[in-house]
């Protein structure tokens, strides 16, 4: 019997498959497609201190093997999510979730982290220091080692749960940022967020996205994500949740060989709402094909 279970910072997951933040809402919409309790966990929509409408539309542009989004962290605010959404979520998801939070100042990160830290349903706190779609926040914290460490330390000072820093690939050297997070006390790394991209509408001769640029994700970025996970695995001791264009059971296995302990699946959910379910179902036969008995045993084994 194939063993799909993995452990992230003492939290045992039935399997490594986790829908990525921003592609799964708070689970509400997907529970109507399948029983989402089959998932390892899920990472909730990135939530900020204040309610946000996000960026003007169009916020989506299609690309070859992927898409660009510029949602800009639309969310109802952390107080609403904790007070109203969490109790509802409890009824349809009975495993620990990953609480993804974002901020525009160190204090905002702390505020949100403190809030979710008190919640029983939260297993891991994922700190988004990598959103490419908001100004003066998000990614600006994740492009410099110093500020990445500062956010890590600040969040760690107000939390007891494992803290995973979600990194942007839009940097010269992601390894330095990952190391700074580890030095700041991070319990793990989530990587990668989207790559900054653009499309131009040839009829209007202007960028399709209202905000001009957005985050590019999807199968096209998988080799980039894989390479970065491979590099960071060699430089840090803390676990990595690998993500970026994963869309099959084979991709999951490949990402784990590169060094990921678990994976997040994003864009694939948008293309096919059953993507995570199908990947979980395909994993045992795919493992058999490559003579893998336990997923735990392959983590980082490409090194």
């Amino acid at each position: 019997m194939a063993d799909l279970s993995v452990t992230l910072s003492n939290i045992k997951l039935d399997n490594p498959v986790i829908p990525a933040s921003g592609t799964f809402g708070y689970g509400m919409e997907f529970k109507d497609f399948y029983d989402i309790n089959i998932l390892g966990s899920f990472s909730m929509k990135g939530t900020t201190k204040e309610e946000r409408f996000g960026n003007p539309t169009p916020r989506i542009a299609e690309c070859t093997a992927g898409l660009i989004n510029s949602v800009g962290l639309q969310n109802p605010g952390i107080d609403f999510v904790v007070e109203k959404q969490f109790p509802v979520m409890k009824k349809y998801f009975n495993k620990p979730i990953i609480a993804n939070i974002s901020g525009f100042s160190v204090d905002e990160y702390k505020y949100c982290a403190e809030k979710v830290d008190k919640e029983e349903q939260v297993g891991i706190i994922e700190i988004n220091i990598s959103c490419p779609n908001v100004h003066n926040g998000g990614m600006s914290f994740g492009t410099e080692a110093k500020s990445a460490m500062e956010v890590t330390k600040a969040v760690k000072s107000v939390t007891t749960k494992p803290v995973y820093m979600k990194l942007t690939p839009n940097v010269t050297n992601i390894v330095d940022i990952a190391k700074a997070c580890e030095d700041g006390g991070a319990d793990g790394i989530s990587m990668i967020n989207t790559l900054l991209g653009m499309r131009i509408d040839l009829k209007t001769r202007k960028p399709i996205i209202a905000n001009k640029m957005g985050g590019f994700s999807g199968p096209a970025i998988f080799p980039v994500a894989l390479r970065m996970v491979y590099q960071v695995y060699e430089a840090v001791k803390i676990p990595i949740i690998g993500m970026g264009g994963i869309s099959s059971a084979k991709d999951v296995i490949e990402m784990m060989f590169a060094g990921a302990t678990a994976v997040e699946i994003g864009s694939a959910n948008l293309k096919n709402p059953y993507a995570c379910k199908e990947i979980i179902e395909e994993l045992p036969s795919e493992m058999e094909k490559y003579k893998i008995n336990s997923l735990k045993e392959i983590i980082g084994k490409a090194h």
Binding site: E29, F30, F53, G54, P58, R59, I60, V71
Partner: peptide, 27 residues
Amino acid sequence: EERMGCGIGACMGCTINTKNGPKRVCY
């Protein structure tokens, strides 16, 4: 009409502002 990412209400790609708050065009 709006450009949509998922079409099932999960990605917030097609949100508009209405008098009743933000609404997802697809959902």
